[in-house]
Design a protein around this nucleic acid. Structure first.
Lengths: 125, 125
DNA sequence: GGAGAAGTTTACGTTAACGTAAACTAGTAG
DNA sequence: CTACTAGTTTACGTTAACGTAAACTTCTCC
Protein backbone atom coordinates (compact mmCIF):
# COMPACT_ATOMS: atom_id res chain seq x y z
CA UNK A 1 0.00 0.00 0.00
CA UNK A 2 3.03 2.28 0.39
CA UNK A 3 3.30 4.45 -2.69
CA UNK A 4 6.57 3.35 -4.25
CA UNK A 5 8.24 6.40 -5.71
CA UNK A 6 11.44 5.42 -7.35
CA UNK A 7 14.33 7.62 -6.34
CA UNK A 8 17.30 5.98 -8.06
CA UNK A 9 17.88 4.18 -11.33
CA UNK A 10 20.46 1.93 -12.93
CA UNK A 11 21.86 2.73 -16.33
CA UNK A 12 19.82 -0.10 -17.78
CA UNK A 13 16.64 1.27 -16.24
CA UNK A 14 17.10 4.60 -17.95
CA UNK A 15 18.19 3.05 -21.22
CA UNK A 16 15.02 0.99 -21.34
CA UNK A 17 12.73 3.79 -20.23
CA UNK A 18 13.98 6.29 -22.79
CA UNK A 19 14.98 3.86 -25.50
CA UNK A 20 18.61 4.82 -25.81
CA UNK A 21 21.77 2.74 -25.44
CA UNK A 22 23.87 2.66 -22.30
CA UNK A 23 26.71 3.96 -24.45
CA UNK A 24 24.68 7.07 -25.10
CA UNK A 25 24.03 7.62 -21.41
CA UNK A 26 27.70 7.24 -20.55
CA UNK A 27 28.55 9.59 -23.38
CA UNK A 28 26.32 12.26 -21.92
CA UNK A 29 28.15 11.82 -18.64
CA UNK A 30 31.50 12.27 -20.38
CA UNK A 31 30.12 15.47 -21.81
CA UNK A 32 29.20 16.63 -18.32
CA UNK A 33 25.44 16.50 -18.80
CA UNK A 34 24.83 13.78 -16.22
CA UNK A 35 26.49 13.23 -12.85
CA UNK A 36 25.49 9.87 -11.45
CA UNK A 37 26.88 8.69 -8.15
CA UNK A 38 28.69 5.42 -7.69
CA UNK A 39 27.94 2.38 -5.64
CA UNK A 40 31.28 0.70 -6.02
CA UNK A 41 31.90 0.78 -9.73
CA UNK A 42 28.29 0.96 -10.70
CA UNK A 43 26.54 4.18 -11.65
CA UNK A 44 23.44 5.21 -9.71
CA UNK A 45 21.23 7.85 -11.24
CA UNK A 46 19.15 10.34 -9.27
CA UNK A 47 15.86 11.97 -10.16
CA UNK A 48 17.86 15.02 -11.26
CA UNK A 49 19.86 12.89 -13.67
CA UNK A 50 16.68 11.39 -15.01
CA UNK A 51 15.19 14.83 -15.55
CA UNK A 52 18.34 16.01 -17.27
CA UNK A 53 18.20 13.03 -19.60
CA UNK A 54 14.60 13.82 -20.40
CA UNK A 55 15.59 17.39 -21.23
CA UNK A 56 18.39 16.23 -23.49
CA UNK A 57 16.16 13.91 -25.47
CA UNK A 58 13.41 16.46 -25.83
CA UNK A 59 16.03 18.90 -27.02
CA UNK A 60 17.21 16.35 -29.55
CA UNK A 61 13.72 15.97 -30.96
CA UNK A 62 13.74 19.72 -31.53
CA UNK A 63 17.12 19.63 -33.20
CA UNK A 64 19.13 21.03 -30.32
CA UNK A 65 22.78 20.16 -29.95
CA UNK A 66 24.16 18.78 -26.71
CA UNK A 67 25.80 22.13 -26.07
CA UNK A 68 22.40 23.76 -26.25
CA UNK A 69 20.89 21.12 -24.01
CA UNK A 70 23.67 21.80 -21.55
CA UNK A 71 22.35 25.34 -21.34
CA UNK A 72 18.82 24.09 -20.85
CA UNK A 73 19.98 21.95 -17.95
CA UNK A 74 21.83 24.89 -16.45
CA UNK A 75 18.59 26.80 -16.41
CA UNK A 76 17.28 24.15 -14.09
CA UNK A 77 19.82 24.72 -11.34
CA UNK A 78 19.85 28.33 -10.26
CA UNK A 79 23.18 27.94 -8.46
CA UNK A 80 24.74 30.92 -10.14
CA UNK A 81 25.86 34.43 -9.31
CA UNK A 82 24.30 37.61 -10.60
CA UNK A 83 26.29 37.84 -13.84
CA UNK A 84 25.58 34.20 -14.64
CA UNK A 85 21.90 34.64 -13.95
CA UNK A 86 21.70 37.58 -16.29
CA UNK A 87 23.50 35.63 -18.98
CA UNK A 88 21.01 32.87 -18.34
CA UNK A 89 18.11 35.22 -18.88
CA UNK A 90 19.61 36.11 -22.22
CA UNK A 91 19.81 32.47 -23.18
CA UNK A 92 16.24 31.95 -22.10
CA UNK A 93 15.12 34.69 -24.46
CA UNK A 94 17.15 33.22 -27.31
CA UNK A 95 15.63 29.79 -26.75
CA UNK A 96 12.18 31.26 -26.61
CA UNK A 97 12.72 33.07 -29.90
CA UNK A 98 13.95 29.86 -31.45
CA UNK A 99 10.88 27.99 -30.22
CA UNK A 100 8.63 30.63 -31.72
CA UNK A 101 10.39 30.30 -35.05
CA UNK A 102 9.94 26.54 -34.82
CA UNK A 103 6.25 27.00 -34.16
CA UNK A 104 5.96 29.07 -37.33
CA UNK A 105 7.94 26.48 -39.25
CA UNK A 106 5.68 23.72 -38.01
CA UNK A 107 2.55 25.60 -38.97
CA UNK A 108 3.78 26.19 -42.49
CA UNK A 109 4.95 22.63 -42.80
CA UNK A 110 1.62 21.28 -41.61
CA UNK A 111 -0.17 23.27 -44.27
CA UNK A 112 2.22 21.99 -46.87
CA UNK A 113 1.69 18.43 -45.75
CA UNK A 114 -2.04 18.96 -46.08
CA UNK A 115 -1.59 20.17 -49.63
CA UNK A 116 0.80 17.37 -50.47
CA UNK A 117 -1.71 14.87 -49.17
CA UNK A 118 -4.46 16.40 -51.28
CA UNK A 119 -2.33 16.20 -54.38
CA UNK A 120 -1.52 12.56 -53.65
CA UNK A 121 -5.15 11.65 -53.07
CA UNK A 122 -6.15 13.50 -56.23
CA UNK A 123 -3.74 11.46 -58.29
CA UNK A 124 -4.92 8.24 -56.72
CA UNK A 125 -8.57 8.89 -57.48
CA UNK B 1 6.10 49.69 -64.18
CA UNK B 2 6.37 46.05 -65.24
CA UNK B 3 6.15 43.87 -62.15
CA UNK B 4 9.59 42.31 -61.94
CA UNK B 5 9.15 38.76 -60.80
CA UNK B 6 12.48 37.11 -60.55
CA UNK B 7 12.53 33.73 -62.19
CA UNK B 8 16.17 32.71 -61.92
CA UNK B 9 18.94 33.17 -59.40
CA UNK B 10 22.69 32.87 -59.19
CA UNK B 11 24.33 30.86 -56.47
CA UNK B 12 25.40 34.08 -54.82
CA UNK B 13 21.86 35.44 -54.86
CA UNK B 14 20.58 32.43 -52.96
CA UNK B 15 23.52 32.37 -50.59
CA UNK B 16 22.85 35.97 -49.63
CA UNK B 17 19.10 35.61 -49.39
CA UNK B 18 19.18 32.57 -47.12
CA UNK B 19 22.45 33.30 -45.36
CA UNK B 20 24.28 30.13 -46.25
CA UNK B 21 27.59 29.61 -48.05
CA UNK B 22 27.85 28.71 -51.69
CA UNK B 23 29.62 25.57 -50.57
CA UNK B 24 26.47 24.54 -48.76
CA UNK B 25 24.34 25.10 -51.85
CA UNK B 26 26.67 23.06 -54.02
CA UNK B 27 26.70 20.36 -51.39
CA UNK B 28 22.92 20.11 -51.53
CA UNK B 29 23.21 19.68 -55.26
CA UNK B 30 25.73 16.88 -54.83
CA UNK B 31 23.22 15.25 -52.54
CA UNK B 32 20.58 15.51 -55.22
CA UNK B 33 18.40 18.06 -53.45
CA UNK B 34 18.86 20.81 -56.00
CA UNK B 35 19.07 20.60 -59.78
CA UNK B 36 20.14 23.94 -61.21
CA UNK B 37 20.64 24.35 -64.94
CA UNK B 38 23.84 25.61 -66.49
CA UNK B 39 24.63 28.62 -68.55
CA UNK B 40 28.05 27.57 -69.67
CA UNK B 41 29.77 26.52 -66.47
CA UNK B 42 27.64 28.67 -64.24
CA UNK B 43 24.70 27.36 -62.27
CA UNK B 44 21.29 28.95 -62.77
CA UNK B 45 18.65 28.27 -60.15
CA UNK B 46 14.91 28.13 -60.85
CA UNK B 47 12.02 29.00 -58.59
CA UNK B 48 11.69 25.29 -57.86
CA UNK B 49 15.29 25.15 -56.67
CA UNK B 50 14.71 28.18 -54.52
CA UNK B 51 11.64 26.58 -52.96
CA UNK B 52 13.55 23.37 -52.35
CA UNK B 53 16.28 25.30 -50.59
CA UNK B 54 13.70 27.00 -48.44
CA UNK B 55 12.27 23.61 -47.51
CA UNK B 56 15.69 22.26 -46.62
CA UNK B 57 16.50 25.17 -44.33
CA UNK B 58 13.13 25.07 -42.63
CA UNK B 59 13.67 21.36 -42.13
CA UNK B 60 17.05 22.09 -40.60
CA UNK B 61 15.54 24.47 -38.10
CA UNK B 62 13.27 21.64 -37.03
CA UNK B 63 16.14 19.20 -36.73
CA UNK B 64 15.47 17.26 -39.91
CA UNK B 65 18.30 15.50 -41.70
CA UNK B 66 18.94 16.07 -45.37
CA UNK B 67 17.54 12.63 -46.08
CA UNK B 68 14.31 13.67 -44.43
CA UNK B 69 14.26 16.94 -46.34
CA UNK B 70 14.74 14.96 -49.51
CA UNK B 71 11.44 13.27 -48.72
CA UNK B 72 9.77 16.60 -48.07
CA UNK B 73 10.90 17.83 -51.46
CA UNK B 74 9.61 14.66 -53.10
CA UNK B 75 6.21 15.42 -51.67
CA UNK B 76 6.27 18.58 -53.70
CA UNK B 77 6.53 16.91 -57.09
CA UNK B 78 3.78 14.38 -57.55
CA UNK B 79 5.53 12.73 -60.47
CA UNK B 80 5.15 9.25 -59.09
CA UNK B 81 3.22 6.08 -59.74
CA UNK B 82 0.55 4.60 -57.53
CA UNK B 83 2.88 2.65 -55.25
CA UNK B 84 5.13 5.64 -54.78
CA UNK B 85 2.20 7.87 -54.00
CA UNK B 86 0.97 5.50 -51.35
CA UNK B 87 4.43 5.33 -49.83
CA UNK B 88 4.42 9.11 -49.90
CA UNK B 89 1.15 9.24 -48.00
CA UNK B 90 2.75 7.09 -45.35
CA UNK B 91 5.68 9.48 -45.07
CA UNK B 92 3.29 12.40 -44.84
CA UNK B 93 1.60 10.79 -41.85
CA UNK B 94 4.95 10.09 -40.20
CA UNK B 95 6.04 13.68 -40.66
CA UNK B 96 2.76 14.93 -39.30
CA UNK B 97 3.11 12.76 -36.22
CA UNK B 98 6.62 14.07 -35.71
CA UNK B 99 5.43 17.66 -35.98
CA UNK B 100 2.75 16.99 -33.39
CA UNK B 101 5.34 15.58 -31.03
CA UNK B 102 7.46 18.65 -31.62
CA UNK B 103 4.52 20.87 -30.81
CA UNK B 104 4.12 19.09 -27.49
CA UNK B 105 7.84 19.39 -26.84
CA UNK B 106 7.76 23.09 -27.56
CA UNK B 107 4.79 23.65 -25.26
CA UNK B 108 6.50 21.89 -22.39
CA UNK B 109 9.75 23.66 -23.04
CA UNK B 110 8.06 27.05 -23.13
CA UNK B 111 6.54 26.38 -19.74
CA UNK B 112 9.90 25.36 -18.41
CA UNK B 113 11.52 28.48 -19.79
CA UNK B 114 8.85 30.53 -18.04
CA UNK B 115 9.64 28.83 -14.75
CA UNK B 116 13.36 29.16 -15.28
CA UNK B 117 12.92 32.85 -15.94
CA UNK B 118 10.87 33.25 -12.78
CA UNK B 119 13.54 31.54 -10.73
CA UNK B 120 16.20 33.76 -12.24
CA UNK B 121 14.25 36.93 -11.59
CA UNK B 122 13.50 35.76 -8.08
CA UNK B 123 17.19 35.36 -7.33
CA UNK B 124 18.01 38.72 -8.82
CA UNK B 125 15.48 40.56 -6.69
C1' DG C 1 31.35 -23.75 -9.67
C1' DG C 2 29.92 -22.61 -14.18
C1' DA C 3 26.96 -19.87 -16.97
C1' DG C 4 24.42 -15.85 -17.84
C1' DA C 5 23.09 -11.09 -17.24
C1' DA C 6 24.36 -6.50 -16.27
C1' DG C 7 27.71 -3.60 -15.29
C1' DT C 8 32.60 -1.41 -16.24
C1' DT C 9 36.88 0.84 -18.98
C1' DT C 10 39.52 1.81 -23.09
C1' DA C 11 39.89 2.85 -27.59
C1' DC C 12 39.32 2.96 -32.41
C1' DG C 13 35.54 3.51 -36.17
C1' DT C 14 31.70 5.86 -38.48
C1' DT C 15 28.35 9.18 -40.53
C1' DA C 16 26.41 13.65 -41.64
C1' DA C 17 27.07 18.14 -43.03
C1' DC C 18 29.58 20.96 -44.31
C1' DG C 19 34.65 24.01 -43.92
C1' DT C 20 38.77 25.20 -46.09
C1' DA C 21 42.31 25.62 -49.39
C1' DA C 22 44.29 25.54 -53.98
C1' DA C 23 44.17 26.32 -58.65
C1' DC C 24 41.47 27.57 -62.47
C1' DT C 25 38.09 30.45 -65.79
C1' DA C 26 35.14 34.26 -67.36
C1' DG C 27 33.21 38.75 -67.25
C1' DT C 28 33.82 43.69 -66.23
C1' DA C 29 35.45 48.33 -64.71
C1' DG C 30 39.03 51.63 -65.09
C1' DC D 1 46.12 45.47 -70.15
C1' DT D 2 45.28 44.68 -65.47
C1' DA D 3 42.93 43.97 -61.42
C1' DC D 4 38.67 42.58 -59.27
C1' DT D 5 34.66 39.89 -58.48
C1' DA D 6 32.06 35.91 -58.96
C1' DG D 7 31.96 31.69 -60.47
C1' DT D 8 34.04 26.71 -61.02
C1' DT D 9 36.36 21.84 -59.75
C1' DT D 10 38.93 18.78 -56.78
C1' DA D 11 40.10 17.11 -52.63
C1' DC D 12 41.44 16.71 -47.99
C1' DG D 13 39.96 18.27 -43.08
C1' DT D 14 36.74 18.77 -39.20
C1' DT D 15 33.09 18.27 -35.60
C1' DA D 16 29.27 16.11 -33.23
C1' DA D 17 27.23 12.20 -31.54
C1' DC D 18 27.44 8.26 -30.85
C1' DG D 19 28.58 2.72 -32.64
C1' DT D 20 31.26 -1.23 -31.99
C1' DA D 21 34.51 -4.36 -30.18
C1' DA D 22 37.49 -6.29 -26.66
C1' DA D 23 38.59 -7.52 -22.23
C1' DC D 24 37.32 -7.30 -17.57
C1' DT D 25 34.40 -7.57 -12.83
C1' DT D 26 30.16 -8.75 -9.91
C1' DC D 27 26.03 -10.92 -8.84
C1' DT D 28 22.72 -14.38 -9.13
C1' DC D 29 20.76 -18.73 -10.20
C1' DC D 30 20.74 -23.70 -10.69
Amino acid sequence: MTAKKKTSWSIGDLAREFDVTTRTIRFYEDEGLLQPERRGQTRVYSAADRTALKLILRGKRLGFSLAESRQLIQMYNPDANRAQLEALLGKIHERRAQLIQQLRDIEVMQLELDEAEQRCLEFLK
